[in-house]
């Protein structure tokens, strides 16, 4: 029955995406169980100087609340967190966020490698990392960090991606656990939720 061999020890889900990932994200957020037992932490490439509108767009169909967290905000289950524009978003030991305005990484701020990498460091084998469609290599190294710390890694099936550079970068850098289509990622997250009941 449980093809993904899941359990109830995970502490967070972290998702990275760029060009071509928006529709997939919307689809995932629209079908998440209402009492999803983990925080969902997202770092998506976005326009640097447009601060408003993205949370609203993602909230339209989301079953869970979507917020852009503040620096040092505690991370809570059942909330979707979105990295704000023009800041890098890290996870700190002690289960809270930290923002930074450091140099761009992979030509990006927020950079997916930073969010994924710090999440991997904090949550170790209690983390699920998901990387979706995207046009640059940002996120590949972050997925490797997650894998190296024992976390579970998923990339979107490259053939389904509008632009497959990002998932392919991850596949080239580490042994990804599951290569899934968006519908399968939704099934995976639903399956995961059952373990927490």
């Amino acid at each position: 029955m449980d093809k993904y061999n899941l359990n109830n020890t995970y502490k967070a889900v972290v998702i990275g995406g760029s060009a071509g990932s928006f529709q997939g994200i919307v689809k995932i957020l629209a079908q998440l169980p209402k009492n999803f037992p983990l925080p969902i932490i997202m770092c998506l490439h976005r326009l640097k100087h447009v601060r408003n509108g993205f949370v609203e767009a993602l909230s339209l169909k989301s079953t869970l609340q979507v917020v852009e967290p503040f620096d040092k905000e505690s991370i809570k289950k059942g909330i979707v967190y979105l990295a704000p524009s023009n800041y890098h978003m890290s996870i700190e030991l002690g289960n809270h966020f930290a923002m930074s305005t450091e140099e761009m990484v992979n030509n990006s701020r927020p950079a997916i490698d930073i969010t994924l990498g710090t999440a991997g460091y904090v949550y170790r084998d209690k983390l699920i990392g998901i990387l979706l469609s995207g046009a640059n290599r940002d996120g590949g190294l972050g997925m490797k960090h997650i894998k190296d710390k024992g976390g579970l890694t998923i990339v979107q099936e490259p053939t389904e991606c509008m632009i497959d550079t990002m998932p392919k970068a991850a596949l080239a850098l580490t042994k990804i656990d599951h290569v899934l289509k968006i519908d399968q990622i939704v099934d995976f997250l639903k399956e995961l939720e059952k373990h927490y009941k």
Binding site: K72, H88, S90, I91, E92, L93, A98, S100, E102, I114, T118
Partner: peptide
């Protein structure tokens, strides 16, 4: 200092 950014620096 916050650990995540300090470590990167």
């Amino acid at each position: 200092y916050a650990m995540s950014s300090f470590k990167r620096r």
